[in-house]
Nucleic acid binder design. Structure first.
Lengths: 335, 335
DNA sequence: AACATTTTTGAATACGTATTCAAAAAATAC
DNA sequence: GTATTTTTTGAATACGTATTCAAAAATGTT
């Protein structure tokens, strides 16, 4: 091993020396499409194998001013919806030759820190899921000239790229579906700060109103099973119990189903119809068979990655907002 | 804005020029503990704010030969167990001032590619979950001198750091728990290639044998709800139906429960006891209340990250294997 | 064979930071 | 006050690659 310094990784210079060529040649040998003769290329590869050489992507990133890294800001790792999407994100990102820097946030306070480290890592682009961005942060992003796509969030002023699902329309669909066969309506909503959840419940309630139902029992909850369970326990204990319940996420709906069945001994859907939102895998489980407004998660994830990569490759400054439709999947939790 | 080149991010040189100091001074201003006067530091910070300067971590990584990035190789994004763990990993990694490069693999074939890109990104360390490493890959890792910790896998020769859960012992515990009140035993196992699943079922079957039960109906499945459902459908259709069923993962167990109840109209636990493994959130749902051998996931995740960071910081070459115990959580899916 | 064209090549430099080293400045000791 | 130690400072260089530029080699044309 004719390595200059022992115990270190080999560099392109080491390979060049062993192969009897210049460092530039080594660089070109590892750059697809670069001008280099086949014979020299072979010689370089042989030397590279001998030294166990692999190009240092960090150095390349510095020289090319492009890291080929996508920053992915995520919350709510326990939500099946988001983890499914996370798998899709990383798969698409890798398929396109990029890598994923995953940044976890527990609450919106941390967004700024996390965003700032992502930018320091010179990510080529950013995907931000379900975080509430302050306008200061938006500015900071725009300032950094780093393309950004929001997932399931949208900026009020449409100044940022976004891919999201039309929750308002989804809520309306649910209302239209439930209206014919039910008379007393209720709704369990997610965190109030979340525009996502607000859109869904607003669509539902507005549509009910349009069709003559002025009253809808509402209960605030968090986006968890337990929270849905507790909210349903409150709602179903009321006099004049509702016979139709819309939950703005599947996880809450499943909790609500279990509360209805286990605490109140209700038959679903005979005594109570329940509808969720998302279509997580558990909604299809035989123990639940939850009717739900399905988000086209795979399509959304793919569109998000493609939108971002296009922005990166074309260096385009104009923004694009993709609003997708939900599809009502009718299972046996509704009559 | 006295920036040298327009439309580019400011560099430490730009800041130095504006603040009237040397580039080294700027570097020191952003290096905690470096020798620099308070007065100059303030002047530099002011200039940095004016130029919206943030240190370029990529350049720093090159200079320091340390990226502060942990590579995290993951499969099975749909499994609630692994996504919970993923959240813990990233949180701990971030708390320690590192970032996470997330690498998704769908099957073991891709491990090599993914590992190789991680190494090219000069990650400071690697966590590998549930992948089967060929010995060639292990060599390649050792060669790269990059610390590695396996999560829920262990190298046969103990030549790699590992944190995992004692599935063999867990399986024995389940057998001991079920033996007194049952007479016909069955087992649904995960993918045969997975040593994780094999350990669990071997512990179970071995212990049954030790205590006089020579026969155990076994059915192979994948680590999914649907697969558990199908496997249970086969097993429960047999003459002389079992009255105790151990599934090597919760997800399969939940599928099995639904098959038992919905297809065979069995009462759980009266007609059939079911035990799972992992303790995913859904196991505690009121619709299931699954008895399970719980993995101490949060502890395991924390230990994994700590083990890795210690190896990185101390540059230690000796390996460490942490084997954790399961805890049997008894719920109402067993009599 | 002479010339024009294309391809291949290596030297030099840039990317943005950390760090070493020696000089300068400040603080302390006597 | 000088001598001594400590702290602060900037110039120079290293990190490992990509890329520009001009020279050299190979190829094609007549």
């Amino acid at each position: 091993m004719t390595r200059t310094k022992d115990n270190q990784r080999a560099s392109s210079i080491d390979v060049a020396r062993l192969a009897g060529v210049s460092q530039s040649a080594v660089s070109r040998a590892f750059t697809p499409g670069a001008s280099i003769s086949e014979e020299k290329k072979k010689r370089i590869y042989d030397a590279a194998v001998k030294l166990n050489y692999r190009p240092n992507v960090i150095a390349r990133s510095l020289a090319q001013r492009s890291t080929k890294i996508i920053g992915l800001v995520m919350t709510r790792f326990r939500s099946p919806f988001y983890t499914t999407v996370l798998g899709d994100f990383t798969r698409h990102i890798q398929e396109q030759g990029f890598s994923t820097l995953l940044l976890n946030i527990d609450n919106d306070q941390e967004v700024y820190d996390v965003l700032s480290t992502a930018l320091q890592y010179q990510v080529d682009g950013l995907i931000i899921t379900s975080a509430n961005l302050s306008s200061a942060m938006v500015d900071s992003c725009l300032n950094a000239e780093t393309p950004i796509v929001l997932f399931n969030r949208y900026a009020e002023n449409n100044h940022l790229n976004a891919v999201y699902c039309d929750g308002y329309d989804g809520g309306r669909m649910v209302a239209d579906f439930l209206l014919p066969k039910h008379s007393r309506f209720a709704c369990i909503t997610g965190e109030a700060s979340s525009s996502t959840s607000r859109d869904r419940s607003m669509g539902y309630i507005t549509r009910l109103g349009e069709r003559g139902i002025g009253e809808c029992i509402c209960e605030d909850a968090e986006f968890t099973y337990e929270s849905g369970f507790e909210a349903a326990r409150k709602i179903l204990a009321l006099p004049n119990r509702p016979d139709a319940l819309f939950c703005t996420s599947d996880l809450m709906a499943l909790g609500a189903m279990d509360a209805a069945r286990n605490i109140f001994r209700l038959k679903i859907p005979k005594d109570l119809s329940i509808v969720g939102f998302d279509d997580i895998p558990m909604a299809a489980w035989h123990g639940y068979e939850l009717t739900t407004a399905a988000q086209p998660a795979p399509k959304m994830a793919e569109a998000t990655v493609n939108l971002l990569l296009n922005a990166i490759r074309n260096n385009s400054r104009d923004t694009m907002v993709l609003k997708m439709k939900t599809e009502l999947i009718v299972r046996s939790s509704t009559r």
